[in-house]
Design a protein around this nucleic acid. Structure first.
Lengths: 357, 357
DNA sequence: GGTTAGCACTCGCACGGCAAGAGTGCTAAC
DNA sequence: GTTAGCACTCTTGCCGTGCGAGTGCTAACC
């Protein structure tokens, strides 16, 4: 859409004024900044309204930007903001704490994003599907107890302590190790069936269900090893914004955000670039968000984990500010991961050597 | 406090009417049910007000129960409610799904409680502090990679895959195993200090930091092994209740409930019995809850995990109904745990043998 | 003496009218 | 093309009013 230079300046002024005040913007409010009389602005406003970039709540009120107006603002008019030194310092400080779990890091990033922007933030982790078993190890604890250690693709390691009231001896456990490593490595959940388990039982000469129990553990690990989590932070922030002073509207959004199927509705990391993507009001696919906006970016932590992180707020959102924060946090996540002296493939979500700090 | 029989009946009627309608209760509203004239009720009401069991928002309004009034209602007057068959069935259905993680089970119980009562529910898990190491095992993967498996008290097992770019051979790993099992078992986080690590390094003849890295892992496991989690469900339910239609008040409670220090402020399971404990308005220690009530019970899942589960809502809460639900869910959690054919000490949060279903 | 009918009184609340203020669209002059 | 001026519209806050719910008190009643 090609609109004149002056119209752009007016639209920009209206958006920024409205974002700040949450009140419809009248012609007088912006005429001083633009060096034009209010009448001129009114004429332009009328045209911008005709073009669908502005809306008028009622005849004698000022204008507010439409979704289309925001879109043009975001695409062409918005100043790319940079964070102040203090802000970047704050982010660094909050994220650089010794983090044990990648999950926790992401959750903290979400909380931080929410605190900095005063909007609810969500962070989605999408664990890599390490659905291939690389090796089995069995630790013989005592006659009734064995620890089964399963190594998966992506250097993920899982264990389970298992009790077998029937008792078993070390020779049998060694046998188990041989058999399972031969039969169960390089396979996926679908490959494990009755036949495979039966053949293992025969190979181990087991009729006590030990083999079946271990196979069950393997299946459950393969099944659960796409640990998608969604973290929501600062949901109550929406109550600060006048558009959600209406409790019903606030509740609708809150319900949507905390709904159990949230995970399914979040965009796929593939669809979201590393740079913040801004989705304005009706551009959202889910109608519950049709009067809210979303700013979202994807992150990737090595081969281990990826996901998206973003904020949700009213369409009247300070997109520039939010995008700047989000962009910085996403970049920082990446840097933290690559820049840390983690060994390249991070062992089981934690670092292998103490980190220098 | 000894109040007359008739006053009790009146108080009970007022509480129940108020819980239902959320409106101050006038003398006429309850006179038919009690078979007394409104004037008589008025006289009694005046006395109950004098005694501090009722309150009057303003002169020409009805009465609402005071915190003291609720307390007497809860202690003496409330009918113990039982759940309907459908309700118990619903609970059973929701909880009996195949649960992999105890954490998930508790979280689901919280969500269920929230859905059934229409109040926010929180569930706190307080993992047993297994802060003693029982044994070390080392699995030699390749020249640069070792999996360290740590067995803790309470049959908890942790592992970590570690990369050592310097490389190490199998003999050295066996040495590590001997040394660590000798020096590091039966100790707590405080026992691990520079001296201990140095002596291990000497014993292993290690100057590459491998020993230090493994000790670091041990410390981090000991530190983090009190996995307390707090789950909050259905927070947005509060917006349904007229007392929280005021967004500021709603936000205050929401902020409190989602605040990061929530864990610290929840009562200790020891202080809470298995039967629902009802804490009314100002009886709450934290002033943020002074106009809200809490109904809470503790649960215990074997030696593995315990915690509390409860709901938060306005003082005008249907205590009988909430207590009935909470009581049933807490009992069901216990039954699920004991009744399942988990081996008595459940191995690492999961079952050791496939469960019959 | 406890209970009840009656009545005056209080107070919150919803309603309607009114004035003020903000903002517009249009016209005419620059 | 720009701007000053003006009539018009519409919201908002305010005030007074009437209504209704509910009370407290008194006097009669059982």
């Amino acid at each position: 859409m090609d609109i004149g230079e002056r119209k752009k300046r007016i639209l920009k002024a209206i958006v920024e004024n409205y974002v700040e005040t949450a009140e419809p913007v009248g012609s007088k409010a912006i005429c001083v900044n633009l060096g034009l009389s209010s009448a001129t602005i009114r004429n332009e406003m009328a045209e911008l309204t005709q073009m669908g970039l502005l809306e008028q709540p009622h005849t004698s009120a000022g204008r507010i930007p439409s979704a289309k107006g925001y879109r043009i603002y975001v695409n062409d008019l918005m100043n790319r903001q940079r964070l102040s030194l203090e802000e970047t310092m704050e982010i660094n400080r909050a994220l650089n704490l010794r983090i044990q779990q990648l999950d926790t890091l992401i959750q903290r990033a979400g909380t931080l994003l929410s605190e900095l922007t005063s909007y609810p933030a969500y962070a989605l982790t999408q664990g890599k599907k390490n659905n291939v078993i690389n090796r089995f190890d069995f630790i013989y604890v005592d006659r009734f107890t064995v620890i089964v250690v399963l190594m998966l693709d992506g250097d993920d390691v899982r264990n389970r302590l298992m009790h077998f009231p029937g008792g078993l001896d070390e020779t049998f456990v060694r046998k188990l190790s041989t058999v399972f490593n031969a039969a169960f490595t390089g396979i996926t959940a679908e490959d494990i069936d009755e036949t495979l388990i039966l053949s293992c039982e025969r190979a181990c000469m087991d009729n006590t269900g030990v083999v079946a129990a271990i196979a069950g553990f393997a299946i459950s690990v393969l099944d659960e090893s796409s640990p998608n989590h969604a973290f929501l932070s600062g949901a109550s922030h929406i109550l600060n914004h006048p558009e959600y002073r209406n409790p019903d509207r606030a509740q609708r959004l809150l319900n949507y955000l905390t709904g159990s199927d949230m995970l399914l509705r979040l965009p796929d990391p593939d669809e979201v670039g590393k740079e913040p993507k801004i989705i304005i009001g009706p551009e959202n696919v889910s109608k519950e968000l049709s009067d809210s906006s979303v700013v979202v970016a994807s992150y990737e932590l090595g081969s281990e984990m990826r996901g998206i992180i973003g904020v949700v707020g009213p369409t009247r959102m300070d997109y520039g500010r939010v995008a700047a924060h989000l962009s910085y946090i996403a970049r920082e996540l990446r840097r933290l991961f690559i820049g840390s002296d983690l060994p390249p493939p991070p062992p089981n979500l934690e670092e292998g050597k103490p980190r220098k700090e």
